[in-house]
Design a protein around this nucleic acid. Structure first.
Lengths: 147, 147
DNA sequence: CTTGACCTTCCTACGGTGGGAAGGTCCATC
DNA sequence: GATGGACCTTCCCACCGTAGGAAGGTCAAG
């Protein structure tokens, strides 16, 4: 199986398969005589696993851990659950922050006439409002969902 | 006012002030004879405006527009409101996606014993679940809230 | 005059994804 | 056996916003 076929079969782009190999998320694929990567069903299953985990918002780092637990037939489910719960907590934190932003903006929008006149509570708030740090615990890394 | 003082007064780091100048979000600051940037109250107010807009999740691009509306005393509030509403819609979209992820994961976590045994519905789902694309309209750019 | 706090520019990294160039391979068709 | 096109390879660049640090200049206080 070529990288393109593996990509279509797994839903992970060829570009990303190479990237995942490069950063060590998956083991380097076998190579043919002509240096083409070669994939089997097992590889594709792993890629699908990764794809689904990404769709649930897990970072590559978290997936590294999930993958090694997946491969370990003797893993305690406790460890998997812990990763999942941590991730849920992080998601909830980010949701709460964005919810606060959206709430504030909806309120301001509601106060804004939205007509031809220049008076605008949204701009007034931006110009004079308190800093409003959008949640206290600043996220430090891992800009997920980025372009 | 030095860049450091402006940074403390506005809540925007010196690093970011230089960056905002570089990308054209703010006009290049005046310079002293020794090539130090020099800021006045007006500059600091602008930085505070930016800071608050960022805290509400606006992208630099959106802030560019907000700033020019802010400076334009004759702007129609309609335009400001439109930007705000667009942004709220985007926030809501992202919130919904993350909510779906969190819901799925909470469900799976709830099914997982989380003990020493290896049986784990979370891993089972990742290994065999359907692709579950976490919302249909893939976001394309602007990883906000990143590292 | 030294020390240390500040400033300057320039380069690097992060997360994850895509775009594209330059060159090699494989297969089918002429 | 040549040719063309679909594929592969590696390598570099971009995005967004933020931070870290190096190498060197400046300023004020001791």
């Amino acid at each position: 199986m070529n990288i393109g076929q593996a990509a279509r079969a797994s839903g992970v782009s060829a570009k990303m398969i190479r990237y995942y190999e490069q950063i060590g998320l998956v083991r380097p694929a076998e190579r043919t005589d002509s240096n083409y990567r070669s994939f089997d069903e097992k590889n594709v299953n792993e890629l699908r696993f990764i794809k689904r985990a990404r769709n649930l918002g897990f970072s590559v780092e978290e997936i590294t851990n999930l993958l090694s637990l997946w491969r370990d037939r003797a893993r305690p489910s406790r460890e998997v659950k812990a990763i999942a719960e941590d991730h849920v907590a992080e998601l909830e934190g980010r949701i709460a922050e964005m919810q606060a932003m959206a709430d504030t903006l909806r309120h301001l929008s509601g106060c804004c006439a939205g007509d031809d006149r220049p008076d605008c509570p949204i701009l007034m708030d931006l110009a004079a409002g308190d800093p409003r740090p959008a949640g206290t615990g600043r996220r430090t890394a891992k800009g997920r969902f980025g372009g």
